[in-house]
């Protein structure tokens, strides 16, 4: 299996690049022993049921840490798969460069942790005041 990566928090992310880069993703909180081959889950048989039957515990919920630790390539895979599903494989191929640029941007932005609780809840105030 190509593209396999192990991330902290025992996140297992599998990705079969041999199968046209589209077979992904299962999140599970089990770190496999060294040498064990991970199961992978084709897109049409994705995620929870397969992962569960494979003996992996499927994550329920969401962790910002997981998001920030995804790499550019992983984000590219996610975006490319979404593009194929939404716009078809032909358009997804056309979008490759743009998807890669966006994957890098997302990975870069999510690597900056936020402290939502410590910041005022608005994003960008617009004032029409010349303070000169």
């Amino acid at each position: 299996m190509d593209g396999q990566s192990l991330l902290p928090h025992s996140l297992v992310l599998t990705h079969d690049t041999k199968a046209n880069s589209t077979n992904l993703l299962a999140y599970a909180i089990r770190t496999p022993p060294p040498g064990e081959e991970l199961p992978h889950f084709p897109l049409d048989n994705l995620a929870a049921p397969s992962a569960h039957s494979a003996g992996l515990q499927v994550i329920v919920g969401w962790s910002p840490t997981m998001e920030t630790e995804r790499t550019n390539d992983q984000w590219f895979t996610i975006l490319h798969t979404a593009a194929e599903l939404r716009f078809g494989s032909e358009r997804a191929a056309v979008l490759t460069d743009e998807l890669r640029a966006m994957a890098e941007a997302i990975a870069r932005v999510l690597s900056e942790p936020l402290t939502f609780h410590a910041e005022v809840p608005f994003d960008f105030p617009i004032e029409r005041i010349d303070r000169s």
């Binding site: 998001e67 593009a83 939404r86 979008l95 743009e98 998807l99 966006m102 997302i106 932005v109 994003d123």
Partner: peptide, 16 residues
């Protein structure tokens, strides 16, 4: 098209 694929949480993160 790429803009339509951006996760909402990512946009909020960027705006913050």
């Amino acid at each position: 098209e790429v803009g339509q694929l951006i996760p909402s949480g990512t946009l909020l993160h960027a705006r913050r």
